[in-house]
């Protein structure tokens, strides 16, 4: 996982719990480490361990923390890469650009990033199905990112998750219904 993701996690913890809490977590989990540079890759488990520690501290369930992190991550990524939000006019076209534009650009910027793949289908104009595939199984993060994007576009959505890697499937289906 790229350092930028860790940076954003640090940002979120600091904003909500204070700098001391982040320091405590690092001291406890990674007494020697905890220094993250945006473009570098770090082991996925480090992120998972840190998130687990955040859950333990805040007594919040994992889903809640990862989901909130996704929303927060979106605002941070959007602030760092405003170009990606320039051309898509609405939420749907933005979401459809993730796989073919945004993450493609990310590949150019960072060496060997670990990115998920998305396939899209639109059974009706108000429903977008995103098929998420990734060995990191971060579908809840994806949900949070989508909520973040929806808030950015001022679009209300209803997200359901009928097929999930965590329930034995090979991929996740994220149903995004666009509400008026």
């Amino acid at each position: 996982m790229k350092g930028v993701i860790f940076n954003v996690l640090e940002e979120m913890v600091e904003e909500n719990c204070g700098m001391a809490v982040w320091n405590d977590i690092l001291n406890q989990e990674l007494p020697e480490g905890g220094i993250y540079t945006a473009g570098e890759s770090y082991p996925d488990e480090q992120l998972f361990n840190l998130v687990n520690a955040v859950c333990a501290r805040t007594k919040l369930p994992m889903e809640k923390v990862v989901g909130n992190f996704g929303e927060f991550l979106f605002t941070q990524l959007a602030a760092r890469h405003p170009v990606f939000l320039e051309s898509p006019a609405d939420l749907k076209s933005f979401l459809k650009s993730i796989d073919s534009v945004i993450h493609v650009e990310v590949r150019k910027l960072y060496d060997n990033p670990n990115l998920p793949s998305f396939k899209y289908s639109e059974p009706d104009p108000d429903l977008l199905i995103m098929q998420y595939r990734s060995p990191r199984k971060l579908c809840i993060l994806a949900e949070g990112l989508i909520r973040g994007a929806a808030a950015h576009y001022g679009q209300s959505v209803e997200i359901s998750h009928p097929i999930c890697i965590h329930r034995g499937a090979d991929w996740c289906d994220l149903h995004i219904r666009f509400l008026p």
Partner: peptide
């Protein structure tokens, strides 16, 4: 000071990314 440093780092990373994109 930390907030300032963080802002400076963000800016540095931004510069690096812009350059990386150009380089690419």
């Amino acid at each position: 000071a930390h907030t300032r440093e963080k802002a400076a780092r963000l800016k540095a990373e931004q510069l690096l990314e812009d350059k990386s994109r150009k380089l690419f």
